[in-house]
């Protein structure tokens, strides 16, 4: 068995860094692969516009990669920072930070591939609107990065948190749970936001006149899709900043870990579902602009109802933290 605390901390930070960069790179790669596949398709449709399409793909990829670069920064910090702490809690915090950023980058990486791909396809269909299409794609994929930014904030706070003399026994679970909560909940919101942005690019290529309404609907839909990741952030902050009384029982630790897992996984489904709703609404705003108000209202109600399972997960998490 390892008895040396420094070794365990090193192991935890290396493991966290590996998860972080591995998952972050996979997410960005899937997104870029989607964009590249769509670009191939559109170049084969319209070979004479290949220059424009490749330019669009380049710019889209550069922005879509941001989530992966966040993961890289966190991984480098985890590997090269010399943790002089002799507290075992540091190991939990560093591992939690790696998990948080790794999972948080997947959703945004995959998600921001959709607007890039749809924009490439749209360029082959409607060459005259290339400027508007690219602007819309960039706004969409920049908003997609929000869950990844949330995860980066949480993992930086976990890395640089002043552990002090907090009791080890339940706090390790709280720190690990804080990482899982924000990181995993960000997957759904990132993918949902990406679906919405992709639909908006497709819509603008179909009917460029409706640019204003489509962009507004997209932004509102993406903002509401971010709600599950905001819930995840809320649970993380509570787990990080509440001081838990020392107790050596297993159940106290498992309650805190369970709170993080519950909110994290509970956020995936509603995030994707909200994205699907916004996707449908954005697509049809461009086809039937007269019904835009009706569509926005239905989208908001539908998204609100499909969020309710995320809210149940948040309630269970809060019960696990505060009541049990």
């Amino acid at each position: 068995m390892f008895t040396d605390v420094a070794t365990i901390i090193k192991l935890a930070s290396f493991g966290g860094a590996g998860i972080c960069i591995g998952l972050g790179a996979i997410g960005a790669a899937v997104g870029e692969g989607y964009t590249a596949g769509m670009a191939n398709l559109s170049i084969s449709h319209k070979p004479e516009r290949s220059g424009d399409i490749m330019k669009n793909m380049l710019v889209g990829q550069a922005v879509a990669e941001s989530a992966g670069i966040f993961a890289l920064v966190i991984a480098i910090v985890l590997i090269f920072m010399d943790a002089s702490s002799t507290n075992l809690l540091t190991a939990a915090a560093l591992f939690g930070a790696g998990i948080c950023m790794g999972f948080g980058a997947i959703g945004s990486g995959i998600g921001s591939g959709y607007p890039g791909g749809e924009a490439c396809l749209g360029l082959s269909r409607q060459p005259s609107v290339s400027n508007r299409l690219m602007t819309n794609m960039l706004i969409g994929s920049a908003v997609c990065q929000t869950p990844a930014i949330f995860s980066m904030v949480v993992s930086l706070m976990l890395i640089f948190k002043n552990i002090g003399d907090l009791p080890l026994a339940p706090t390790w679970a709280a720190l690990l749970g804080a990482g899982i909560s924000t990181g995993v909940a960000a997957i759904g919101s990132g993918m949902g936001g990406g679906m919405t942005a992709g639909a908006s690019c497709e819509s603008i290529a179909r009917n460029p006149e409706t640019l204003g309404r489509v962009t507004t609907t997209m932004l509102v839909g993406q903002a509401v899709s971010q709600t599950p990741s905001i819930f995840g952030l809320l649970v993380s902050f509570i787990l990080m900043f509440k001081t838990f009384p020392e107790s050596s029982t297993l159940s106290a630790a498992m309650a805190l870990l369970g709170a993080g897992i519950c909110m994290g996984f509970g956020g995936i489904g509603p995030g994707i579902g909200n994205g699907m709703t916004a996707q449908g609404a954005v697509k049809w705003v461009s086809r039937n602009i007269e019904a835009a108000g009706e569509l926005m209202r239905t989208m908001l109600v539908g998204q609100a109802v499909s969020q309710s399972t995320a809210i149940y997960a948040m309630v269970i998490s809060l019960v696990l933290v505060f009541v049990v």
């Binding site: 709600t227 905001i230 969020q307 309710s308 809210i311």
Partner: peptide, 12 residues
């Protein structure tokens, strides 16, 4: 769900 949605968003 209706009350925790409002609470969670504003508190978050």
């Amino acid at each position: 769900s209706i009350s925790f949605r409002l609470f969670g968003n504003i508190m978050g």
